[in-house]
Design a binder for these strands. Structure first.
Length: 199
DNA sequence: CAGAAGATCTGC
DNA sequence: CAGATCTTCTGC
């Protein structure tokens, strides 16, 4: 297994989102939980009406405008947390939304967090994934790189096999008309039972 | 300072 | 298919 380093994140969000497919996301908390990503989306700051960073730096978006290789966690709809990895370089807002994954380690812990539901439902959606992984505002801004990181990503032998599966590139989910809903910046492993919706 | 929308999910 | 539920930002 090989940890993703700063140079992986220091690219445009579209490239990062695509290459995150098949990578493993890990959270070392009281217990260890991990998922293999099967669905991501790119959000591209000032280029992208769908991005929280479209209108520049605010208290909420400052993490995305910061250095790459950090986690951006936001709260929405009055009850959900969603997580992204920050891309590009400091001062440039780009991020990849972590939309769905296949549970690997800590499945029992994920069930404690999410309820007694099937594996394929534990992380099938950005808010479900964040809940299964135990992410909330505590993790907003944490570094994904460096030896002390408790949240990080890695690639392994299976990563290549996931990347060589058929990856669908589609429009993003949940955006209002005119807010970048026509941009094909979503990546999903075709036919994956762990995706937020079948494709 | 008020109002509206929101990168969603669950249960009816 | 509607309700939950509250943060964040915009406009006045």
């Amino acid at each position: 297994m090989k940890r993703l380093t700063r140079s992986f994140y220091a690219r445009d969000a579209l490239s990062v989102a695509r290459d995150l497919i098949g990578c493993v996301l890990v959270h070392h908390a009281d217990a260890v939980t991990s998922v293999r990503l099967v669905e991501t989306e790119a959000y591209r700051g000032v280029l992208d009406p769908g991005s929280h960073g479209y209108r520049g730096v605010t208290p909420r978006t400052e993490v995305m405008y910061g250095p790459p290789g950090h986690l951006y966690v936001y709260f929405t709809y009055g009850m959900h947390w969603c997580s992204n990895v920050v891309c590009a370089t400091e001062g440039v807002c780009e991020a990849a939304l972590l939309r769905a994954g296949e549970p690997l380690e800590g499945i029992d812990v994920m069930r404690q967090r999410r309820g007694a539901i099937p594996d394929k439902m534990l992380a099938a959606g950005p808010a479900r994934l964040a809940q299964a992984m135990g992410f909330d505002k505590t993790q907003n801004g944490v570094a994904l790189v460096g030896n002390k990181a408790s949240v990080y990503l890695y690639e392994d032998a299976q990563t290549a096999s996931y990347r060589s599966k058929e990856i669908a590139q589609t429009v993003r989910i949940g955006l209002s008309p005119g807010k970048g809903d026509d941009l094909p910046w979503r990546f999903v492993v075709k036919g994956s039972p762990h995706a937020s919706r079948r494709y």
